[in-house]
Design a binder for these strands. Structure first.
Length: 468
RNA sequence: UCCUCCUUAGCUCAGUUGGUUAGAGCACAUGACUGUUAAUCAUGGGGUCCUAGGUUCAAGUCCUAGAGGGGGAGCCA
């Protein structure tokens, strides 16, 4: 077989290789469909670079019947052929095959993917093969684009990418149940004289867990480098079985010295708009596919978010709106309650019909590190609520006063002694600062139009499910 | 964790008041067709009715328990 340089399908279809028309080229990829008659076959070949396929035209008089039989949906091919303008409709160019090598066959009796559509539930059971479908190819290309855009956004604004630890000894982050990390033999755990587990014999000589948030370590970065962001995996051992929760997910947590809550909101809003706009500009083919297949208003909704200001509202005002609404709520509304899903949905989807930033929550329902307002009742918290997916961002201005922070920790039962390293930020050169966390997969739900969070991460981790 | 619905061919599903040999579409195989676009048409093969118990002359169908999945709730990002 002639040794030709491989050209990626994205370059063939997006014009970068138009000068190749009339020449013999090489493409490599996986067979999506094969159809045809006794004299001619059409193979739709996809190499993952783009959602579209290149059509390979095979004159059956020139190829052995046995080779053609082995070319089935899912097989991987190396094809040499002449790039020509297509004689059929549906594509501009196609390849008239001269030589075909089969890299890998896909047995039709056992290969689970077919030409026709599958349910997302079925594809979840074969998560190791689903990236070969149009849908998941589009989603995971967009996942990459969004991750890249995150770094570009912050780099362009002078933020530093800060690596907070994945293994942590702090269990006071207060964001949820933690996965324990240990090398102790769990069948024969060493005990101390009090009958408790003797962690001094463990790998780190102490009790350790997987992080539930990089925020506390992020504050250390902000109070030295000025503006940092983290972007890494996060783990929560909550028994949450919903389409919006994973036990292993990715979170972006910027933290900025000298930012107040207003600055924090401005950053968060421009960040989300930047990401959505980046998707509109750079993921056009994939968005159009997802819109056609799953969500007819997807692109319109993304454009709406880019073009419109988010509503900014104090918690107290939100309670008033809810109390004055004619809507019947399952959970009663009153100042001091933690807003339920139905309340958030009413505000975002019915009352304002826009993303909403809620601020100044009662201190009792928020974390200890949030800055207390002068009213003595509320804290400088902000949640950004999105249609359909709910809370996409949670953040706050942080309490910079050492005394107030210690007082609040004692009120909620956290021992300040164990958080000495964190309190040192307030003890030495404390500064006003703010930050927030964005759930990466929740953002992906919004930009892809998917409705189940298990469909926007390659290998979802949820309670009772850690296959692959 | 709670509520609720679902589990029948490789996939998506039908299956009546419990009753003879469990069906369809797609996929797959074979054949037809000189260019198809999720090609089309014809023919054919293909079943642990989720698992374990129970009721009954008789269970895919009814009952109990379990497993897996969907949706909703809580927790949150």
């Amino acid at each position: 077989m002639k040794d030709l340089k491989r050209i990626e399908i994205i370059d063939l279809l997006h014009g970068k290789a138009t000068d190749q028309v009339g020449k013999e080229i090489c493409v490599k990829g996986w067979v999506r469909t094969k159809r045809g008659n006794k004299t001619i076959a059409f193979i739709a070949l996809n190499d993952g670079t783009i959602i579209h396929n290149i059509q390979v035209v095979v004159d059956l008089a020139q190829f052995d019947e046995e080779i053609m039989k082995r070319i089935t949906t899912g097989a991987c091919l190396r094809v040499n052929g002449k790039l020509v303008e297509s004689m059929g409709q549906g594509q501009n160019v196609e390849i008239q095959a001269t030589e075909i090598e089969i890299y890998g066959e896909a047995d039709v009796d056992t290969y689970p993917l077919q030409k026709k559509g599958h349910t997302l539930e079925f594809l979840r059971e074969i998560a190791h093969l689903r990236p070969r479908t149009n849908t998941f190819g589009a989603i995971f290309r967009m996942r990459h684009a969004m991750a890249f855009a995150v770094h570009k956004f912050y780099n362009d604004r002078g933020f530093f990418y800060w690596h907070s630890p994945i293994i942590t000894s702090s269990d006071a982050e207060g964001a949820g149940e933690m996965f324990q990390v240990t090398t102790l033999d769990i069948n024969n755990v060493p005990k101390n004289e009090n009958g408790l587990i003797d962690y001094s014999q463990d790998f780190y000589g102490r009790h350790t867990s997987l992080t539930v948030s990089g925020q506390l370590e992020g504050e250390l970065g902000a109070l030295s480098l000025g503006k940092i962001y983290t972007f890494g995996p996060t783990f929560r051992a909550e028994n949450s079985n919903t389409p919006r929760h994973l036990s292993e997910f990715w979170m972006i947590e910027p933290e900025m010295a000298f930012y107040d809550l207003e600055d924090n909101m401005n950053l968060a809003e421009s960040f989300i708009k930047y990401l959505v706009n980046y998707a509109l500009l750079n993921c056009k083919d994939d968005l159009e596919f997802l819109q056609n297949m799953y969500d007819k208003e997807l692109i319109e909704r993304l454009q709406f978010v880019v073009d419109n200001d988010f509503v900014r509202l104090k918690y107290t005002e939100a309670i008033t709106i809810l109390e004055n609404s004619t809507q019947k709520f399952e959970f009663p509304v009153g100042w001091g309650i933690d807003l339920q899903s139905e309340h958030e949905r009413y505000l975002v989807e019915k009352h304002f019909k826009k993303p909403v930033i809620l601020i100044d929550y009662p201190k009792e329902i928020k974390a200890f590190y949030m800055k207390q307002n002068e009213d003595g009742k509320t804290v400088r918290a902000m949640d950004i609520l999105f249609p359909k997916i709910g809370e996409i961002i949670g953040g706050s201005q942080r309490e910079e006063s050492l005394d107030k922070l210690i007082e609040r920790m004692e009120q909620v039962g956290i021992n300040p002694e164990e958080m000495k390293w964190y309190l040192d930020t307030r003890r030495f050169g404390s500064a006003p600062h703010s930050g927030f966390g964005l759930g990466f997969e929740r953002l992906l739900l919004f930009v892809t139009g998917m409705v189940n969070i298990r469909d926007v991460i390659p290998f979802p981790r949820t309670p009772k499910n850690a296959e692959f």
